[in-house]
Simulated assay, not measured.
Amino acid sequence: MQILADRHLAKPEDPLTLLGARVHEAEGRGRIAFALFQAARTAGPIFWIALAHDQDRLLPEGLAERLHLVEARDETDLLWATEEALRSPAVALVIAEPARPLSLTVGRRLQLAAEAGRTTGLMLIHQGSGSQAAETRWNCEPIPGPEDSTRHRWTLIKNKKGTIGPYDVNWYGSAAAFHLVPPTGKRCQSEDPPR
């Protein structure tokens, strides 16, 4: 079981990797795509916790055997189920969709649960309703592109342990593979050395 715990705490290998044993937040119109992207990249069981009256459910191909959907009666049950799932060392990723803003107390409780279970949490929040206790906060928006484009701009707007900034991503929605796309007007190759 020690190998599993160490895997969850590994340092990020790319800028889109969520730090293990921490709770992160995603807001914006593309937050569901960001959550699915993180789920596709995560090995092991995934818990997705939402309010029962929220009828929009996704069951992405390739995740069906690892994805456990939990429907909570109200916000209190949603936060309780999220905390309990985060405390379990057998769970790799917990995604929750709270309807109300997260207080500092709630955010801190979730962080402590994630640390105890060495589990990664991702809260899908409404714009401006996150907790100061979150490790990172991402603003996720689809961006226009050519026909059949799957471009997203995922902007890291809060980061307790590093830099912030935007990442333009082409992600095809079914695998963990993606391409970072340079922002418009940015150079794709290195400059020639000075003469």
Rank of each mutant, 00 (worst) to 15 (best):
M123E: 06
A35W: 03
N139I: 08
Q2R: 11
F37C: 06
P60D: 11
P60G: 13
I164W: 03
D6E: 09
A134L: 10
R41H: 10
T120E: 01
L51H: 06
P15W: 05
T163D: 05
S149F: 07
P183D: 09
P98F: 13
A90W: 05
L124E: 01
P194V: 03
T82Q: 07
E141M: 11
T17M: 05
V91W: 07
C140W: 00
G30Q: 01
A116I: 08
E83R: 00
T82E: 05
L19F: 07
L63N: 08
F37P: 07
V91N: 04
D54E: 13
R7A: 14
W48Y: 13
Q111F: 10
E97I: 05
L4H: 06
E27P: 02
L9P: 15
T163P: 01
P45F: 11
Q127M: 15
I164H: 01
T17E: 02
P144A: 11
L112H: 03
L58D: 05
P166Q: 06
G20K: 00
I32V: 15
F34K: 02
R187W: 10
M123S: 14
A85G: 09
H53C: 06
P142S: 04
A26I: 03
S174R: 02
V91F: 09
I164F: 02
L124R: 00
C188E: 15
A26W: 05
T82H: 00
L86R: 05
K158I: 06
E115W: 01
K160E: 15
P101Y: 11
G173E: 07
A5P: 13
G128H: 12
E61S: 01
P45R: 12
L180C: 14
A133H: 06
P12S: 05
L19D: 03
H152N: 01
L19M: 07
L67A: 12
T42V: 04
R29I: 06
K158H: 02
E25K: 04
G128R: 10
L86A: 08
P98A: 15
N139S: 15
L4V: 09
L79Q: 05
V23Y: 00
F47I: 00
G145V: 09
E71D: 15
L59H: 00
D77A: 14
H53I: 01
Q111A: 15
L19W: 00
A10T: 09
A96C: 15
D14C: 06
W138L: 11
A99T: 08
E97C: 14
L4Y: 06
W171Y: 15
P60Y: 11
A113D: 02
H152Y: 06
E27L: 11
